[in-house]
C-alpha cells in the first residue's frame, strides 16, 4: 500500500444559502487505495465529491490532488482523474461507442478504437457498443458511465454509488472490476456508497460521513474487524442455494425463506456468481450489519 497522499481534503465546507451541507470535512486518500466514501443518504457525500471533482465550489477549505491545489490546477488534475458522479447520464442519441469517443475528445485527445474497445470489454458492454444509449438498461448505462471514467486511463477514479441500478450479477461484475482496477491496474479508486457491506467488500480504507461531518476515517479491516461478513441472500430456490453455499462456508442456514450466512468477504462475489450459474435467481444480497448499526456501535 503506497503512502503517497493523492487526495487531501482539509476543513472543507459548503453552504447553500442557510443550509450547511458540509461542515469542515478532512480526509486523505493515498495512492493505490480503494477508498470507501460512506454515509447515509443526505450525509454530504455527493456534495463533498462534487467539490472534489470541481462541479461545485467550496465555501471554505482546501482540496489538494496530486499535491496540487485543485482551485488553481483544475484542468491538469482533471486530466488525471476519471469521474462518474451520481446517475450515469450520457448522450442517449449517440451509441455507447460514440459517447466514449466524443467524451474522450474532451480530454484533449480522442481515444483510439483499440482503447475504446478495451474499456468496453472491461465493463462488459461488448456486443452492445453500437446501440444507441437510449436503448440501454439502467445497468448498461452504469457500465458505460464507468467506461467513460476509465477511457483516458486516469490515475484516480471517482465513482459515486457505482452499483446503483445494477442487477445482482451486475453488482458483482462491477465490484470485481473495481477490485481489479485497484489490484491489477494500480489505480486509486474513490467510491461512495450508502451500503457498508459494499465498501467492506471492496475498500481498504474508508471515511464515514454523517450530517456533513466525518464520523470516522481509517483502515477498513481495523474499523470493521474480521475478514468475514454476515449477509442474507434472497433467491429463487433457497434449498438448492443452501447446498451450494454450504460448499463455501459451514455457517449457513435458512431463515424466513432467505439464506443467512457468514463467509469471507472476498467470497461473496464468487458465491453469487455460482448461484446465478446454477440457474438460481438472486434477488438481493443484504449485509446483516447495517451502516446505522455501525453508527450506533461507534457512539
Amino acid at each position: 500500500m503506497g503512502k503517497t497522499p493523492v487526495l487531501e481534503v482539509r476543513g472543507l465546507r459548503k453552504s447553500f444559502q442557510d443550509f450547511e451541507a458540509v461542515k469542515g470535512v478532512d480526509f486523505t486518500v493515498y495512492e493505490g487505495d480503494i477508498f470507501g466514501f460512506l454515509g447515509p443518504n443526505g450525509a454530504g457525500k455527493s456534495t463533498t465529491l462534487r467539490m472534489v471533482t470541481s462541479l461545485i465550489n467550496s465555501t471554505a477549505g482546501d482540496i489538494r490532488i496530486f499535491g496540487l491545489p485543485l482551485s488553481s490546477n483544475r484542468e491538469h488534475i482533471l486530466s488525471r482523474m476519471g469521474i462518474l458522479v451520481e446517475k450515469p447520464d450520457l448522450y442517449g442519441f449517440l451509441s455507447g461507442y460514440d459517447n466514449l469517443s466524443m467524451l474522450s475528445s474532451l480530454n484533449g485527445k480522442r481515444a483510439s478504437r483499440q482503447r475504446i474497445e478495451e474499456v468496453i470489454h472491461m465493463v462488459g458492454l461488448q456486443g452492445r457498443e453500437q446501440d444507441k444509449v437510449r436503448k440501454y438498461s439502467q445497468g448498461m448505462r452504469q457500465r458505460l458511465g464507468i467506461a467513460q471514467a476509465l477511457i483516458h486511463d486516469p490515475e484516480i477514479i471517482i465513482l459515486d454509488e457505482p452499483s446503483n441500478g445494477l442487477d445482482p450479477q451486475g453488482i458483482v461484475d462491477i465490484r470485481e472490476l473495481i477490485i481489479r482496477l485497484g489490484r491489477e491496474f494500480k489505480k486509486t479508486v474513490i467510491l461512495s456508497s450508502h451500503l457498508l457491506n459494499e465498501v467492506e467488500m471492496m475498500a481498504n480504507r474508508m471515511v464515514i460521513i454523517n450530517k456533513g461531518q466525518v464520523t470516522v476515517e481509517g483502515d477498513v479491516q481495523e474499523l470493521l474487524g474480521g475478514s468475514t461478513i454476515k449477509v442474507t441472500i434472497s433467491c429463487s430456490h433457497p434449498e438448492q442455494a443452501l447446498k451450494i453455499a454450504a460448499e463455501t462456508t459451514p455457517d449457513v442456514r435458512i431463515a424466513d425463506g432467505q439464506l443467512v450466512l457468514e463467509i469471507p468477504k472476498e467470497s461473496v462475489a464468487k458465491l453469487v456468481s455460482k448461484l446465478v450459474a446454477n440457474q438460481i435467481e438472486v434477488q438481493a444480497v443484504v449485509p446483516v450489519r447495517k451502516l446505522e448499526d455501525y453508527f450506533i456501535s461507534l457512539t
Binding site: 462541479l55 447520464d89 474532451l106
Partner: peptide
C-alpha cells in the same frame, strides 16, 4: 437537465 453537463464539466477543459 439531462445530467450530461456533469460529464463535460469534469473533463480537463476550462
Amino acid at each position: 437537465a439531462s445530467g450530461t453537463l456533469r460529464l463535460l464539466v469534469t473533463r480537463p477543459i476550462s
